[in-house]
Simulated assay, not measured.
Amino acid sequence: MNVTVKLFAGLKEAAGRSEVELDLPDGARVSDALAALAHLAPDGMSLVLAVNREYAFDQQVLHPGDELALVPPVSGGAPDAPSARIHVAVRDEPLSLEAIAARVADPRAGAVVTFDGRTREVPFLDYEAYVEMAEPVLREIAGAAVERHGLCAAAVEHRVGRVALGEASVLVAVSAPHRPEAFLGAREIIDVLKDRAPFWKKEEGAWKHESVPSPPDGTAESSP
Rank of each mutant, 00 (worst) to 15 (best):
A129C: 08
L68V: 01
V122N: 08
A99T: 03
Y127K: 04
V61C: 11
R179H: 00
E128P: 06
G65W: 02
E147I: 07
R120P: 02
V112S: 08
F57K: 13
A111E: 09
A142K: 01
G150K: 06
D106I: 14
D58M: 11
A69V: 00
E132K: 01
L171M: 08
P94W: 14
P107Y: 06
V170M: 09
L138Y: 12
R85E: 15
P73C: 09
A176T: 00
L138N: 01
S83N: 12
A69H: 00
R159G: 03
A56D: 12
R179K: 06
E147P: 02
A144Q: 13
R91C: 15
V113Q: 05
A89I: 07
A186N: 12
V163R: 05
S83V: 10
A142T: 00
Q59I: 03
A99Q: 12
P136M: 07
V90T: 05
S83T: 14
E67H: 13
A109G: 08
A81R: 11
G185K: 03
A154N: 00
A84V: 11
D126L: 12
L184N: 13
D58H: 03
E157S: 10
H158Y: 10
D126A: 05
P82W: 15
A78D: 10
E167N: 03
V137M: 10
A101V: 03
P123S: 09
E98Q: 13
H63D: 06
R148D: 05
E140N: 11
P180I: 14
V137F: 11
V74K: 10
G166D: 09
P177F: 04
G65H: 02
Y130L: 05
Q59C: 10
A144W: 11
A111F: 12
V163P: 05
H178E: 06
C152M: 04
Q60C: 11
Y130W: 04
E132N: 01
P177A: 04
A105R: 09
A99N: 05
V174F: 13
G161E: 08
I100H: 08
F57T: 13
A153S: 14
G161D: 10
A176D: 00
G161V: 06
R85A: 11
L62F: 02
A186S: 11
V112R: 13
A69E: 04
L151S: 00
I141G: 02
F115G: 07
A99F: 03
E167Q: 05
S75K: 07
Q60M: 14
S175W: 06
R148F: 12
P72M: 02
